[in-house]
Simulated assay, not measured.
Amino acid sequence: MNAVFPGSFDPLTNGHLDIIVRSSQIFDKVIVAVMTNTKKKSLFTANEKVDLISEAIFSLANVEVVSVESDLTINLMHQLDAKIIIRSVRNNRDFEYEKDIALMNKELDETVETVLMLANPKYAHISSSLMKEIFKFDGDISNMVPNHIKVAMLKKRHEVTSRED
């Protein structure tokens, strides 16, 4: 059975990667869908995120990454002929948010199921938004993202700083 793990992944965190690895052990194929979150300003472009995630999952033979510029997850599910949406839950607030989205997706297509996976406790405090805030003020994010993503973030910071000079 194919499953889709949608998100903005800006950037991919160790928590995201843990969910991808665990999902790859459950489902025949996992498609990581880089989606646009209209409420957030992205650090990386969609193509950059696809490349960074692809590097992180290179050893997982049954995982692939796709970019979806602007569409509903449910439409992507139809395009991919997938019936399972994977979502991660770190806390009660996440659960309430994800429950509402799952119910809305069920309203749009009753054949699509959402599987909520509990975050690994060692990553439950990590969110892309908090991680970017820590990084912005030179905090150490080494335990929050794969090393190649930290390097890409440092490069992105350097590019922004160079443009401002």
Results as ranks from 00 to 15, higher is better:
L80D: 06
D94N: 13
S23P: 08
Q79R: 13
D138M: 07
S24A: 14
D51F: 10
A56L: 08
L130Q: 13
S129C: 11
K40N: 08
S8R: 11
L130M: 15
A102V: 05
E55N: 12
M35W: 11
F27Y: 06
F135I: 10
K41I: 14
V21H: 06
I86E: 07
G139I: 11
A46E: 00
K29C: 12
N120A: 05
V66G: 02
I101L: 11
L116A: 15
M35Y: 05
P6R: 03
T114S: 07
M77A: 15
D100R: 04
T73W: 06
K132G: 08
M144Q: 07
F95K: 05
V30H: 03
E113R: 00
G7L: 05
P6I: 10
I101T: 04
S67W: 01
Q25L: 15
S42W: 07
M35N: 01
E107I: 09
N47H: 13
A124N: 10
K49H: 05
S67A: 15
N75S: 13
A3R: 07
E98Y: 14
L60T: 03
S59Y: 03
V34H: 02
L72M: 12
N47W: 02
R87W: 12
N92M: 06
I20G: 01
D109E: 14
I85F: 05
I86K: 02
F44K: 05
I141Y: 10
D140R: 08
S67V: 11
L108V: 06
D71A: 11
D71Q: 03
S128F: 04
D51Q: 14
E113I: 15
Q79V: 12
S142K: 05
A46F: 04
L52Q: 11
D51E: 12
K40I: 15
A124S: 12
T45L: 00
V50T: 02
E133K: 02
R90A: 03
L80Q: 13
K49D: 02
I85G: 04
